[in-house]
Structure formats: structure tokens, C-alpha cells
């Protein structure tokens, strides 16, 4: 080995280090996504499948026409897709924890939270990809934007942000339970009812009264309503604020819980 050289070090300012380490680990996630694109298949195929099934099978019955129903359903499916996408980060992290690489991270003088933050940020690209693929597929089926492109992009960004924030809840689940199968199971049990007891598939007013109460606070309802407004040019009301509020709540509640659970796992 060569003689011990003076190693140029970067700033040791703590918050800066956390940001820098998290970004380095984000890069790691991106390389992994790039190397294993097949991991994206399920999340990209599923929304296409749902669009076809619901539009062509139920469209006539629910909305009286497939084209009208597609306009209504597309934002809902997008919301469902990002919510489902959050499950896979919980599953992946649960798997990763078993692997030696997390031992290596824990033996380095970096913040414990950096690997988790890196994984969550790395997932942004997954949400962007599923958003684009869902959009493209819906477009082929005849979905059209009726608002300015800027509004539409804002709608998509809102969906991505929602996915990233919600993923902290599933990271928490991933830290709590023992097997990745259990993470998948719990994720489905939570996300499925959330998407059906919402305005994803049908208008809120068609639901039984007792359920409407839940639907009205359901974070997915607000996300879907925001996107409908932003894509179709209808009024958004304060649904965007509600959605942002939910996003903040997910992070404020579940990020500390996930980090604490991760620390305890050691």
C-alpha cells in the first residue's frame, strides 16, 4: 500500500453531511433501478391493466360511456398506482436489511437515517416512470388533458410527491415486520381499502352515506380530486392543500417512526 496520504475531506458540517450522504445513497438506488428495470414491470403494467378492465368492463355501467369514464378514471388510477408503488419500497428495504450492505452502512460514520432517506429519494424516479407510462397508456386509450400543460405537470408532480411521502409509512412497516411477504400483505390491506373507499372509481356522492365521511378525509380522494382539476381544467377547490397536508403528515409521523424502528433493529 502507498504511504498514508493526506486525504482531502469535504465539509464536516453535520446537516450538510446528512444531505450529501443521503444523495450519494440515492445515487446507489438509481444505479440499482437502472440495472434491474424488470423490477418496474409490475408497477407499470398494473395501471394499464386496471384502465382496460375498468374502462371497458364497467365504463358503460358506471358512467354511461367508455370515453367519459376514461377521463374520470385516469387520475384515480394514477393515484392508486403511486400508492401501490409505495408498497414496494417497504418490501425492498425489508429485504435489503437482511443483506450485508446494511451492516456496512451501520459500521460507517454516517447518520443512521442516510440509507433510508437515500432509498426513499431514489424511488422518486420510479414514481416518475410509472406516472409517465400510465399517462402514455391512457393517452393511447383516448384520454386527453383539458388544462394547460403546466397544470397537468403540476398534477403529476403532486402524485409523485404523494408517493414519496406515503412511502415513509411503508418503510415503517418494512422495519417493523419480519418478512417481506408480510410487508406486502399489510401494504395491500391498507392501500386496497383506501383506493376503493375513495373517489378513484366512482363519484363520492354515489357511495352510502356512512362511507362518505371516510371518503371525504381519505388522502387519496384529495389527491384524485386535485389531479382531476389539474388535468381536466375543472375547479380544484382546496383539495391541493388537503393533499399537501396529508403529505406533510405522512412524513412528520412516519419518518421518525421508521428511523426509530430501524435503529431498534440493530
Amino acid at each position: 500500500m502507498t504511504a498514508i496520504a493526506v486525504q482531502p475531506l469535504k465539509s464536516q458540517f453535520k446537516p450538510l453531511r446528512l444531505v450529501r450522504h443521503s444523495l450519494e445513497l440515492t445515487k446507489r438506488s438509481l444505479i440499482k433501478t437502472w440495472r434491474t428495470p424488470e423490477a418496474l414491470i409490475d408497477v407499470t403494467v398494473q395501471p394499464a391493466l386496471f384502465l382496460v378492465i375498468f374502462v371497458y368492463i364497467f365504463g358503460g355501467a358506471i358512467a354511461g360511456g367508455t370515453h367519459e369514464y376514461l377521463q374520470f378514471l385516469m387520475p384515480g388510477i394514477l393515484a392508486q398506482t403511486v400508492a401501490m408503488g409505495a408498497i414496494s419500497i417497504g418490501v425492498n428495504l425489508n429485504n435489503d436489511l437482511e443483506k450485508g450492505i446494511f451492516d456496512r452502512f451501520r459500521s460507517l460514520p454516517i447518520a443512521r437515517s442516510a440509507p433510508l432517506i437515500g432509498a426513499v429519494l431514489g424511488d422518486v424516479v420510479r414514481y416518475v416512470i410509472v406516472t409517465i407510462s400510465t399517462f402514455a397508456f391512457a393517452y393511447l386509450m383516448g384520454f386527453r388533458i383539458h388544462a394547460s400543460p403546466l397544470h397537468a405537470i403540476a398534477g403529476c408532480l403532486l402524485a409523485v410527491l404523494f408517493g414519496v411521502c406515503l412511502s415513509w409509512a411503508l418503510v415503517f412497516v418494512g422495519m417493523l415486520v419480519r418478512t417481506s411477504g408480510a410487508v406486502q400483505g399489510i401494504g395491500f390491506l391498507v392501500i386496497m381499502p383506501l383506493t376503493f373507499a375513495s373517489n378513484v372509481f366512482v363519484g363520492t356522492f354515489t357511495l352510502p352515506g356512512w362511507m362518505q365521511g371516510f371518503v371525504k378525509v381519505n388522502p387519496l380522494t384529495h389527491l384524485v380530486q386535485s389531479m382531476r382539476g389539474l388535468f381536466l381544467g375543472t375547479p380544484v377547490g382546496n383539495h391541493v392543500w388537503w393533499t399537501l397536508g396529508w403529505c406533510a403528515a405522512f412524513v412528520i409521523v412516519f419518518m421518525p417512526l421508521a428511523l426509530a424502528a430501524y435503529r431498534k433493529k440493530v
Binding site: L9, R20, R28, P109
Partner: peptide, 10 residues
């Protein structure tokens, strides 16, 4: 390289 940057090397 990842471990190097995590150790704050340039």
C-alpha cells in the same frame, strides 16, 4: 467510490 464519498472523501 460510494464508501469513499460516504467517508467524506472528495
Amino acid at each position: 467510490v460510494l464508501f469513499g464519498t460516504l467517508l467524506d472523501l472528495r
